[in-house]
Design a protein around this nucleic acid. Sequence first.
DNA 1: GTCAATGCAAATCGTTTGCATGAAC
DNA 2: GTTCATGCAAACGATTTGCATTGAC
Lengths: 147, 147
Amino acid sequence: MSIKEEDFIEELKRIVKQKGLKYTEQREIVLSILLQADDHLTAEEIYNKIKEEFPETNVGIATVYRALSFLEEVELIASINFGTDGKKYESNAKSHHDHLICTDCSKIIEFIDDEIEKRQEKVAKANKFKITGHSMQLYGLCEDCQK
Amino acid sequence: MSIKEEDFIEELKRIVKQKGLKYTEQREIVLSILLQADDHLTAEEIYNKIKEEFPETNVGIATVYRALSFLEEVELIASINFGTDGKKYESNAKSHHDHLICTDCSKIIEFIDDEIEKRQEKVAKANKFKITGHSMQLYGLCEDCQK
DNA sequence: GTCAATGCAAATCGTTTGCATGAAC
DNA sequence: GTTCATGCAAACGATTTGCATTGAC
């Protein structure tokens, strides 16, 4: 487990305690699965991974959803929306970024563009909006799928 | 009906014919509702508007969904995703733009930023992606809801 | 007349909820 | 011991599908 991952687990403990809630194995497992994943996972994929990697722990899909909502709320993880096809989650251990999504094979490429970020702030300010989050996806065909 | 709206209806007729499909009143009604709407509508809202504005026409919600998929596929309309809360549609008669969405009152403000568009192209090119569409939403609190 | 499009109801899928039980504190 | 979190199954809401019927061509 990398240092960053430990930090996130510690952060979760801190948040839970500070809110007067309880620290459970399930919440930790969901977070750690996302910390170790190198791609974006759906709730169901996380649920299956738990059953695989932690067969001794009994988890319900409802708990996975509850943990994900909680972790997203406290900003330890983030989600991208795939419409009817559900949401995908990733940990916030990586720095902020946006996504290029292949509409054919669903591959996701992450990118950062500071200029875009800056312009977004500007637009928000011009419209007197207090930004709490944003979601930007570019859809298209990846190199392989263009063939 | 503005000239632009007529153009869109004509375009629909052309596309339908070219594809060897059938031109139906229902598809035209769904498109024209979106052409006349000044805000973004859900499938259900469109369905209700049809029952209101075209009470003599019998439509099922399934047909509305089928028409919306079709119209989106041929790029006469576009959608923005609200996750579990469903999709909202708008016609493509207006020029391309992105959205500022209030997480409190759901108000949507449209904006265009050429610089952001340019940077997006650049990012796509750098990753050898062939862009077919994009979706960018900034979430936050609008002026009123900050109070 | 043929074939696509429709309306309806049932089915599906991701997600949420109610409730009794179990675990953290 | 109290209270929050869990697992399970049932409920939910948006969207899709199967199928017999209708309507466009």
